[in-house]
Amino acid sequence: MRSEIFLLLAGMTAVTYIPRMLPFVLIDFDRLPSGLRRFLGFIPVTALGALILPGIFLQASGRPVSAMLVIGVAGTTGWFFRGLAVPVILSIAAAWVTGIL
């Protein structure tokens, strides 16, 4: 491995691992103020919102119908079915079909 790449990877590894590790290891959740606990309790939902939008429309650029179909199919099946396999498989199938057509 080239030494410049080695240094790059070492740096990237550090700045990827440390932000994941420090809060995960150090936080004593019960001792946090209740407001902060509530704030962190909303993070899963707000993260999902920000992960979906606008990413799906950028990823499916030029194919907004596929993007909306994925949200529609995954949203409907995710509402009614437990588990992730059914929504994900049906959405991939729907996006594939619209991509081929």
Binding site: I52, S91, A95
Partner: peptide, 15 residues
């Protein structure tokens, strides 16, 4: 392309 969109289906279904 469709499988990549599957990650967004995953996020939607988790919501």
């Amino acid at each position: 392309d469709a499988m990549v969109l599957g990650l967004y289906a995953l996020f939607t279904a988790l919501l």
